[in-house]
Design a protein around this nucleic acid. Structure first.
Lengths: 196, 196
DNA sequence: CTCATAAAGTGACCACGGTCATTTTAAGGA
DNA sequence: TCCTTAAAATGACCGTGGTCACTTTATGAG
């Protein structure tokens, strides 16, 4: 049994997160230094690593917050009724994941739960994403979206294509086509029953 | 105009790659240390970085060789004539990318060309992969595989699902289902025209 | 209020990737 | 064979992520 954390610890945690967020906003994830975060937060280096397992962990925390905000935004809007609407509806997620190369790497690396224990914030968010996609798709299966495939599988497929398209967007050779156009090209045959 | 490299340089390069390969084989990519590679190769640390931009670069070189070997193996076999055969045919690629977590991260991070210049070995391999997939699929479009979607797009989709399934396999929560089963579940609705 | 105990925080220290001014070695023209 | 020049290699050095034995601070029991 571990006691509840003291207020001091919560305050320190918040100061570290605030400092990191400010630094990232002012520069980028790639340029964030632990020393700088610690200096700005006014704590010692050791304190940082008693709050976050490693540098990745604080990035995961920050990006997790961003993703959660994006999910709330997506939940607030009505379910998309076409592939084009769906791609539009994904905009908040895309905005976060496609904004920073290092952040995207962190997302991909932490999208699956690594430990046996509880899922990290990003991994949990990925589960939530698929759940939302399923909630969007299922009511329209047979009318708009194909009904011959389980909605859960369709939802996971959306996620796979989303990641693929964002990854391609970071690639200088292949990013001639806008991300949204490419995503539409994938999702249309994935989600719509072809006319035979 | 740059002169051709001297034999000495080629030999050093080979020694570094051999040393790194031996160390990875004996432990793992995660445990590979540049100092150790350099020690085993009998050169100074600076030499390493005059041959490889950074630690990632030698991993890319090693994994690139492995992927190339896998592609040769896949080229040697006849084209698959069903989704099940296709998943089987992908075995050599899966074996490499699903074997080591760090190696997979390196592959994903380098699957798109970063620089404006030439594609790295892994990025080039990814292009080759899609080309092979297209060569497999196109002759069978209409008979086995769906014909309503461009073969190039189908090929890229195979790659997206392959990456997704390998990533899921590294995730301790989700790897109940065997990788190949999951891949088959994705590729069947992706590649086969649904009976309406 | 005092003290015992555990949580919280500290900073000197280490490990390891990466740099660069300098030295060594090979190539080829005279 | 000698000399010039550029390629190749060197290793001391640095930056930054991460550790850990120790100090400080809060808490709750008596």
């Amino acid at each position: 049994m571990s006691r509840a954390p003291q207020q001091r610890r919560l305050a320190t945690n918040a100061r570290l997160l605030d400092a990191a967020r400010a630094i990232v906003a002012a520069s980028s994830y790639a340029d964030m230094r632990v020393e700088e975060v610690v200096l700005k937060a006014g704590v010692a280096k050791g304190t940082f690593f008693s709050h976050f397992k490693d540098k990745d962990a604080i990035m995961v925390a920050l990006i997790g917050e961003d993703l959660e905000r994006a999910m709330r935004e997506m939940h607030a809007k009505p379910a998309p009724e076409s592939v084009a609407d769906l791609v539009d509806a994904l905009a908040p997620l895309i905005a976060i994941m496609a904004a920073d190369r290092v952040a995207f790497d962190v997302v991909v690396r932490n999208s699956g739960a690594m430990a046996v224990e509880a899922l990290g914030p990003i991994a949990q968010n990925f589960v939530d994403q698929v759940a939302l996609f399923v909630a969007w798709i299922m009511p329209l299966q047979g009318r708009v979206f194909r009904a011959d495939v389980d909605a859960a599988l369709l939802g996971e497929g959306i996620q796979a294509f989303l990641i693929q398209c964002i990854a391609m967007n970071f690639c200088l050779v292949e990013n001639q086509t806008p991300l949204e156009d490419r995503l539409t090209a994938y999702l249309t045959p994935w989600l719509i029953a072809p006319q035979v």
